[in-house]
Amino acid sequence: MSAGQIAALIAAGAFVVLVLLLAIPLLKLGRTLDEATIAIRKAHESSDPILLGANETITHVNTQLERVDGITANAQAVTGNVSALSSVFTATLGGPLVKVAALSYGLSKAVRARRRKQEAKAAAPARRRKK
């Protein structure tokens, strides 16, 4: 064996060692990718029921929102009716009611003033007698 052949054998051995050293990480990487593929597949399979449940929930929520929208529209109509009724009441009875209240206040004030005058007149002769 010549020196070139020995060098070729050493180079071939080093190449085999290099291939073996690189094959081990590649095999481990292949297993890791297989496990990742299995995990993704399981996640996909388990996400279908979750998505179906979410879809049903959203449908139910939309139904409830439509009901709330109807209730809100009815409440708005009632508010408008109450506002119109109060306007009619104010226009019809508000003015006369205020006038009646003012008249009763004025009459009660006048009656009190007259009573005070009468009491003052009745008290005046009694004061003169005491002197």
Rank of each mutant, 00 (worst) to 15 (best):
residue 120 A to M: 04
residue 112 R to E: 06
residue 49 P to C: 04
residue 120 A to H: 03
residue 120 A to K: 03
residue 78 V to L: 15
residue 99 K to P: 00
residue 3 A to M: 07
residue 76 Q to V: 12
residue 64 Q to L: 15
residue 55 N to L: 12
residue 59 T to I: 14
residue 12 A to C: 04
residue 34 D to G: 00
residue 16 V to G: 00
residue 115 R to C: 05
residue 109 K to L: 09
residue 130 K to S: 11
residue 47 S to A: 13
residue 54 A to F: 00
residue 33 L to W: 11
residue 19 V to C: 01
residue 118 Q to I: 13
residue 108 S to E: 11
residue 83 S to E: 01
residue 14 A to S: 12
residue 102 A to D: 09
residue 36 A to T: 03
residue 24 I to M: 05
residue 70 G to M: 12
residue 61 V to H: 06
residue 125 P to E: 09
residue 107 L to M: 11
residue 92 T to K: 15
residue 103 L to S: 06
residue 4 G to H: 08
residue 87 S to W: 07
residue 18 L to G: 04
residue 71 I to N: 14
residue 56 E to G: 04
residue 28 K to T: 06
residue 55 N to G: 14
residue 119 E to T: 09
residue 83 S to A: 09
residue 80 G to T: 07
residue 9 L to E: 10
residue 56 E to W: 03
residue 129 R to C: 09
residue 124 A to E: 13
residue 52 L to E: 14
residue 74 N to R: 15
residue 127 R to L: 14
residue 115 R to D: 07
residue 58 I to L: 14
residue 13 G to Q: 12
residue 124 A to I: 08
residue 53 G to W: 01
residue 65 L to A: 11
residue 97 L to K: 03
residue 49 P to L: 05
residue 37 T to Y: 06
residue 91 A to F: 09
residue 10 I to F: 00
residue 120 A to R: 02
residue 101 A to D: 08
residue 104 S to G: 02
residue 107 L to W: 05
residue 108 S to M: 10
residue 90 T to L: 08
residue 83 S to N: 10
residue 68 V to T: 14
residue 71 I to L: 15
residue 62 N to S: 12
residue 63 T to E: 13
residue 102 A to F: 03
residue 8 A to I: 08
residue 13 G to S: 09
residue 16 V to L: 10
residue 52 L to H: 06
residue 83 S to F: 13
residue 73 A to M: 13
residue 81 N to D: 13
residue 100 V to H: 03
residue 48 D to C: 03
residue 115 R to H: 05
residue 105 Y to K: 09
residue 38 I to D: 04
residue 12 A to E: 06
residue 59 T to N: 14
residue 112 R to A: 11
residue 12 A to R: 12
